[in-house]
Amino acid sequence: MKDNLAIIALESFQEQGIKINSTLCKWRESENYLIPCKCPRFSSGEAKGMISESVRDKDLYIMVDVCNNSLRYKMDGEMNRMSPDDHYQDLKRIIVACNGNAARITVVMPFMYEGRQHRKVTRESLDCAIMLKELEFLGVNRVVTFDAHDPRIANVVPLIGLENVSPALQFTQGFLTEYEDIQIDKDHLMFIAPDEGATERVVFLASVYGVNIGMFYKRRDYSNIVDGTNPIIAHDFCGGDLNGMDAIVVDDMIASGGSIIDVCKQIKSRGARRVFIFSTFGLFSSGFEKLDKAYEEGLFDRIFTTNLVYQKKELLEKEYYCSINMNRYIAAIIDNLNKNESMQALVKPEKRIKEMIASYLKQ
């Protein structure tokens, strides 16, 4: 059978794309699957998508990081930083540049574009749904994302595949590798959701680990909007006794870090021994000053986030930070999909996590 795999990594995901391609080539004893692309811009700021090779009859995987704010382009003689909107437009340009000739197109978008704008509360746009409908119109057959803010957004496009992958296995690997003294039982460990939206993630992990959960409820001021959202008035805790326990706070993203710090402060005030943070996407959009101060005050012990989005160099140098590498897992996902094999074990890796915990407890 002819190997019809092809990969395009936009500039925002190029570094990871090269490593993912290298892994796949090693597994399959091939030379290269990566097709170069570029999106040159005119002085007005307009752009076009270009690919350097034919993708006719290829099973094509296009990878993009819409959160990579390290890239810039020149417009009217000045440098502009690329926003999620710019990255999404470039993705569409590359899809269109394929001229409809690929046998199948899968978009690998780890952070789902406009994923936080997934539902209507008042007279407002529904950006994530529009994005998915646009990709469907452009001929995309499948979207692979990680830890979607609300997995129910898949209902918008029931006729194309939307794989929402959990990075729980990699967090477990990183956590148990870094710490050799974790007691995994109901008396010493608890998973905590910082808000009601994170409950599903926490329930999954707590079930696999065999421990209890706690949850914070965000009380918001719905009469005001600050920076696009209703400000949080307070975090109220629902859960058991935390005295002397290790607590793991699990969320899909850290943006400014304000909410997660408040949650950690409350957990420590309830007598928790150590506080760890698992967050799929570390955006750190307000810098690190608040987090540095919180760490110095002993409010948390370690932050684990993935390399699925751009990581600032300053972040990688932080004593309290641990990066979770997802390149090999993305390669495994592409390999599985290309071979038309089941994705269940990769999307929800419950069995492998249990095996890892069992091995850890025997040590």
Rank of each mutant, 00 (worst) to 15 (best):
D65M: 00
D65R: 00
T229I: 14
D236N: 15
L361E: 13
P36R: 11
S359V: 14
G282L: 02
K290N: 04
C322K: 10
E178P: 05
S286V: 00
S323P: 01
K268M: 08
E178W: 09
Y61F: 15
K268H: 10
F284C: 03
K26R: 12
N68G: 09
F171T: 05
Q173M: 11
G174S: 14
E114Q: 12
R56G: 10
F175C: 08
M63E: 02
V66W: 06
K339E: 06
V143N: 02
K133T: 12
N69P: 00
E314S: 01
A247K: 05
V309I: 13
R270W: 12
A193D: 03
D147M: 04
V263H: 03
S285D: 13
S269F: 10
L299M: 13
I7L: 09
R123P: 13
M1A: 14
C39H: 09
G239A: 06
S256A: 11
A193L: 07
A148M: 15
D127Q: 08
A9K: 10
Y33Q: 04
Y33I: 01
F284P: 00
K186W: 10
K290I: 01
E314R: 00
N99I: 09
E11S: 07
G210V: 15
E319V: 07
S44M: 12
R41T: 11
G214T: 00
S12Q: 03
E289C: 13
V249C: 08
S342A: 10
M50W: 14
K58G: 03
Q344P: 03
A97Q: 05
L346K: 02
K290Y: 06
S359R: 15
S285K: 03
F276T: 01
R142T: 15
S44Y: 08
Q117F: 09
Q183Y: 15
Y329T: 03
E163D: 15
R152C: 11
T280H: 04
Q16T: 04
V64F: 02
